[in-house]
Simulated assay, not measured.
Amino acid sequence: MPSADPAPPIPRNSNGIPPFSALPLRTGDPFFSAWGLYGSHDELGTLNRLTPTRVLAAAAQEIRTGARVSTDAPLTVHTSADKAYFARAAFHQELIHKAPRIVNDDIWTFNTQGSSQWDGLRHYGYQKEERFYNGATLEDFHGPGFKPGNRTKDPGSERLGIQAMAEQGIVGRGILLDFHSWRLAQNPPVPYDPFKRDSITLEQLQAVIEAQGTVVKFGDILFIRSGFLVAQNEKSEEELTTVKDNIPHSFGGVEQSEGVLRWLWENFSAVAGDQPSFECWPSKESYAMHEVILAGWGMPIGELFDLEKVADQCKKENRWSFFFTSKVCNVPGGVASPPNGLALF
């Protein structure tokens, strides 16, 4: 009996993926999508690139000094005026003294995308087609009778939930592109404002790679330090509140272009940055790269990562690669999760 999920009849390279020019893989699927590459029921997307062989090689080659650096900002770091970016709820902690014993519990309430976070595959779909990775729909997540704007308190389906990523984590070789340090070292410095609609171009990212002497390997987890946290720390609470009140927000980030998409597709298993939106926002094109990266390929997008200490350690060791491990929260049907990430050198 033939397989229910036959491999697309297209050539694959030595890394097991089709060329970017072959996307979409099937007639009628959304632009640049790779639906069906790992089967129609797959929920890991490009995390399938993190094979045991690649993870083992990354551990053997990258862990040398034993230094360990967190990539997570505090859950409270982006909160001002009781709100986070994109009108998301702020983090709240309730501390409970369990009298008469000398014992404490606490309760946390927070939006999973209010601080450092991985966007899961339920987060952002193709807007025109109204489809998520491998063709999933809003009805798949919210259940029958879905209406736009619904808050679903008890999702009936776990499809594409963050629990799939929690099973083995996001683990492998990480590389940091320290765009912020590179741009300041140029003469004159490259202009870029993380709080404006400025783009980081593919040519600039490739220049950073060359300046650092970094070698990109297939399956790497990409991190881009734009300098967002540096800029945020220079703003007052009043200025940050004004930013959060001004909807839609404007943020710097990676440019929307076919060249960037090709580069990401050909090299990485997951991508992350220190920006509220990995890409320049609002998009300068008719599409958002979130549509392709998340909904088209099933590639996790990390945002608001704290890469300051990672950058310091990279400079200290004079290398911008490391072993990275991230264990997302095991929440069936979850949309996003704090990374719980560590860079090991």
Rank of each mutant, 00 (worst) to 15 (best):
A7L: 14
A7Q: 10
N15S: 15
A22D: 15
P24A: 14
P30A: 06
W35Y: 10
G36V: 07
G39C: 10
S40C: 07
H41E: 15
E43K: 12
L44F: 09
L44T: 12
R68E: 14
A73H: 01
A81M: 04
A90H: 06
F91E: 15
F110H: 11
R122I: 14
Y126L: 08
R131G: 04
D140T: 11
P148A: 01
L160W: 00
I162H: 02
I175F: 07
L177Y: 02
D178E: 05
R183W: 08
P189Y: 07
Y192W: 07
F195N: 02
R197P: 02
F223P: 02
I224C: 08
S226K: 00
A231V: 01
N233P: 02
E234H: 08
K235A: 06
E237G: 04
E255Y: 05
V260F: 05
F268R: 00
S277N: 14
S286Y: 08
E291A: 03
V292F: 08
A295G: 10
G296H: 00
G302T: 02
K309L: 15
V310F: 03
C314K: 04
W320R: 05
S321G: 09
F323P: 04
T325K: 14
A336W: 01
P339T: 09
N340I: 04
F345T: 00
